[in-house]
Simulated assay, not measured.
Amino acid sequence: MKLLLKKLNYIFPVLILIGFYACKPAKQSYTSPKGYDFNHPEKFTMPESLHEISGIAFYKGKSDTVYSIQDEEGRLFRQAWGNKKQKHAVFAKKGDYEDLAILNETFIILRSDGTLYTFPFSEATKDKVANIKEWNDILPDGEYESIYADQQTNQVYLLCKNCKEDKKEKTMSGSIFTYNPAKKELIASGNFSMDLTPLIDKGLILKTGLKASALTRDPHSGDWYILSSVNKLLVVASPDWKVKGVHRLNSSIFIQPEGLAFDNQMNLYISNEGDELSSGNILKFARKP
């Protein structure tokens, strides 16, 4: 009897371990877009003033200076890459500012309600921005977090994060404007949409949609890169908005991904808002041959 009990004392722990590993869910697989390794970024930790960093942008693709905003104050930040010391220019009162773009010599900043602010690039070095223009009610009602500006065509693309018709149609809609720098005007130039049915049917995203938090474009292929903080995904789409790839993001690396940009060396950058335990940051993914 004692011998039996002794054997059972050895057997039970083994059985428990076998049961634990049998019930343990399979390890999550994380992929990266072609040419990048999302598992090994270079991390630039933000100061407290940019704990809630949202959009990021580069002037003519030059990565030596990062321009950014955060989603509580109407301030345009600038800082050298790797240097936490920042300077800023006030462009508006407090509000929910989500993304920005630099279109040649013009800044365009997006507020979550679809309001846009435009002002000359030269104003970025001042304490308070002058010559600012505010654009209201030019977008369909909804919530917006993503803007992209095409340097060659002067076209501005805006994605809707939450729009009533999108949820019903299982699409992600967007609007296009053309910016006339001489007259400083935004001219409505069309709309577009992306079919989300395949992503929803496969359970890759929430039934309520992709919830885009940032948008940029591969300068070489023309493919769209769409970031979703809610779904923890990066979606790559063709120039005509057809899904080409879906990459799930590791939450231990991507805390709350909100900003997205390429530099002129084709390196990819993703900014993350901080949380109670981690500071905000910008992750750099070097382009691999």
Score class of each variant (00 low, 15 high):
I255H: 08
N83Y: 07
P181A: 03
K60F: 07
A188K: 14
D99S: 11
Q28F: 12
S193D: 09
L139W: 01
V236D: 00
E73P: 07
S173F: 06
K87G: 09
D263L: 06
L215R: 07
S238Y: 06
S175D: 15
F44G: 07
W224S: 00
E185T: 15
K34C: 05
N83T: 14
Q152M: 13
Y117F: 15
E72A: 06
S122N: 11
G55Q: 02
L76R: 04
L206Y: 12
W241N: 08
K62V: 15
I270F: 07
S112Y: 04
P181C: 03
E48G: 06
E145W: 03
F77W: 13
K288W: 06
H247F: 13
I270S: 05
K7E: 10
D64L: 11
Y269H: 03
G245Q: 02
P33R: 03
A22E: 10
P289V: 12
K43Y: 04
N39Q: 13
A22Y: 09
T118G: 08
L227I: 04
K184I: 08
K6R: 14
S238W: 02
V14E: 05
D150G: 04
L103E: 03
L8A: 08
H51D: 09
I69N: 00
K164W: 09
M172D: 01
K27S: 15
C23L: 14
S189R: 03
Q265N: 12
V129M: 02
L4N: 09
S146N: 06
E169G: 08
F192S: 05
H40R: 08
K43N: 11
E98Q: 12
L158I: 15
M46E: 02
L260I: 07
E258P: 05
G74K: 01
N9W: 14
K2T: 13
I187N: 15
S238H: 07
S173T: 14
G245A: 00
R111Q: 14
F121Q: 08
S213Q: 01
G82N: 08
E165V: 10
T153Y: 05
K27E: 12
D275A: 00
S49K: 10
G35I: 00
K183G: 05
K128E: 13
Y144A: 04
D223E: 13
A26D: 13
D223M: 05
D127H: 14
Q70L: 10
K242Q: 15
M172G: 00
I205K: 04
L17I: 13
L206R: 14
V129T: 03
N250F: 10
K2L: 13
E98C: 06
I108H: 02
L159H: 02
F285D: 02
Y225D: 00
E185H: 12
K207Y: 10
W135E: 01
K284R: 15
Q70C: 09
V66C: 09
L5C: 11
